[in-house]
Design a protein around this nucleic acid. Structure first.
Lengths: 142, 142
DNA sequence: TTACATGCAAACGGTTTGCACCCGG
DNA sequence: CCGGGTGCAAACCGTTTGCATGTAA
């Protein structure tokens, strides 16, 4: 199933469905947990499958691109900060074309989150919401 | 103002309010934009203030800790992934004590986000919501 | 047969750290 | 005066890349 999706995706791009790529795919789908590239390597090794770290790092972006895998908890490779004094908590709309960041605050959204936490008996300390897409300007151009 | 907050915070921890820390604080508050440690260094250099990169890296966690600065766009230093097939989009509750990750999906939340985007004429492609706090188990222990 | 892929090891780049010297309290 | 702080440069470590070799189509 995932196999078929990935294979067709690769075909369309003129890329090859190698045994290493199949292995990475299999590793990815052998767990419902989050993982990082290293987890994946260890996971595969445990199954006796040998794939180089490089191949894992080269395959993951393909899986992202065809939508079989999603990235969690990281947008960029380095830390970003902002000072909070005077403007308090807010969320962000991030334009994936021009990089523009639009701050956003919604009381309704905040309340809803508090309620969702309650349902899970989770004590919320802080949260981060980032919505990625195209800002009005970039959207108009396209 | 920020100065006072930071100074008192340091005092309470038995730490010193040095000119380097003051400089970093000043740099942080001299912009309303996001920045990374390197931006900050350049920003300070431009003003003729010399602080080492190491001091910036050592000061930022303190500013986070006392709430004068927030981290944006990064939780962890390495990428995390999850496969999407079969369980589609969802958000996450992340326990900052035990690391447990609870998946969460709320139709209401999704709808609200779409509406917020509309208001900003933003074309939403994807989003990430992470709520950090204490899971029920860790909460019970504390 | 021939692009494209792989493995390896070296390079990269952001972040952390050891150490000798410095300085705020 | 002294314990924490600083700058510097080296170490770290996750990720990327160049290159010789392998292989899917």
């Amino acid at each position: 199933m995932e196999n078929k999706i990935f294979k067709e995706f690769l075909e369309k791009k003129g890329l090859k469905f190698t045994k290493e790529r199949a292995a990475v795919l299999k590793g990815v789908f052998s767990t419902h947990n989050h993982f990082d590239p290293d987890d994946l390597l260890i996971n595969l090794r445990r199954k006796g499958i040998r794939v180089s770290k490089a191949s894992i790092y080269r395959t993951l972006p393909l899986l992202l691109e065809c939508g079989l895998v999603e990235q969690v908890e990281k947008v960029d490779k380095h830390a970003h900060y902002e000072h909070t004094f005077g403007h308090g908590h807010h969320d962000h709309l991030i334009c994936i074309k021009c990089g523009k960041i639009i701050a956003l605050y919604s009381e309704k959204l905040e309340r809803l989150q508090v309620n969702l936490c309650k349902k899970e008996k989770f004590r919320c300390i802080t949260h981060t919401l980032e919505i990625k897409g195209y800002c009005s300007k970039c959207n108009a151009k396209a």
